[in-house]
Nucleic acid binder design. Structure first.
Length: 263
DNA sequence: TACATATGATCAT
DNA sequence: TGATCCTATGTAA
């Protein structure tokens, strides 16, 4: 379930559970066998996320680059003692924890220069300190494409995915079909601020929650799944019940509320 | 069993 | 824009 908050959380969890001592690395599936052998027995020196990209630096100097893509998962083993399934690309283990990676779009060892190239292609990451909001605003001002499509462009802002783009624009009251360059400075600032706010919540909770607990009438902990989002994957607006409009932007479907997201 | 679908990105045309 | 890759899950047949 990978938008940026997931990867940031993952980077932290890997550090806290595997950091400090040598890690056993294997590739039960075999497709990353040579790479796993190179980091096997090393310690994690650094584990960080940039947008949806995960970088784990090892004491040997190798950098593990993982991108989960649409269906990839990197999670603690359900049963650490069971024989690993043969879909597991990479398994990282010490005496405290076992992590299993399946279905990644990318799992490779890269050099620091290659890491820099990847990061250089990415826009500011709202979950990183010192993220450059002005650079984001300037990208919007330059783009005549719909804001709904622009928010998915990782070169503009790194980490937003299909859920957050829909939810952010709802919370900001902005119709996704509007040209990015048509947003006022205040609107662009609002989009950035809400992106930071909502993704931080996602990072803290480990799941995407964009609804206001006061509006829902329940604490976040007691919210049903159906109450967590305003528009994503819904037929009707969580706020007013109006039938949502679905459009395809950036090659992927998204919904908006015609009442709360005016032209 | 088969098929559709999923919080993504890349490559070919 | 469309095809393709990667895996797991839910629903239909």
């Amino acid at each position: 379930m990978p938008e940026g908050h997931t990867i940031h959380r993952l980077a932290r969890s890997l550090r806290s559970t595997l950091g400090g001592e040598p890690v056993r690395a294997t590739s039960p599936q075999g497709r990353f066998g040579a790479g796993a052998a190179l980091i096997d027995g090393q310690r994690i020196e650094r584990s960080e996320a940039f947008g949806k990209y995960l970088f784990v630096r090892w004491t040997s100097g190798e950098i593990l680059h993982v991108h989960l893509g649409l269906i990839g998962k990197f999670r603690p083993a359900l049963d650490a003692t069971a024989e690993p399934r043969d879909t597991i690309r990479l398994r990282l283990a010490n005496d405290r924890a076992v992590w299993e990676l399946t279905g990644p779009a990318r799992c490779e060892l890269i050099t620091p220069a290659e890491r820099r190239e990847i990061v250089a292609q990415l826009g500011p990451d709202p979950l990183r300190r010192n993220a450059d909001a002005e650079r984001f605003r300037a990208s919007l001002a330059r783009s005549s494409k719909p804001i709904g499509a622009v928010l998915l462009d990782q070169r503009v802002v790194a980490g937003i995915g299909n859920v957050y783009r829909a939810e952010i624009l709802f919370v900001c009251g902005i119709r996704p079909t509007r040209a990015a360059s048509a947003l006022s400075v205040e609107e662009a600032a609002l989009v950035w601020d809400e992106t930071v706010r909502l993704m931080r919540i996602g990072l803290r909770l480990g799941r995407i929650v964009t609804t206001d607990p006061a509006e829902i009438g329940r604490s976040v902990g007691r919210m049903a799944d159906d109450d967590r989002l305003y528009v994503y994957h819904r037929q009707h607006c969580r706020r007013c019940g109006t039938e949502l409009v679905t459009v395809e932007l950036g090659g992927r479907p998204m919904s908006y509320c015609p009442v709360h997201q005016p032209r």
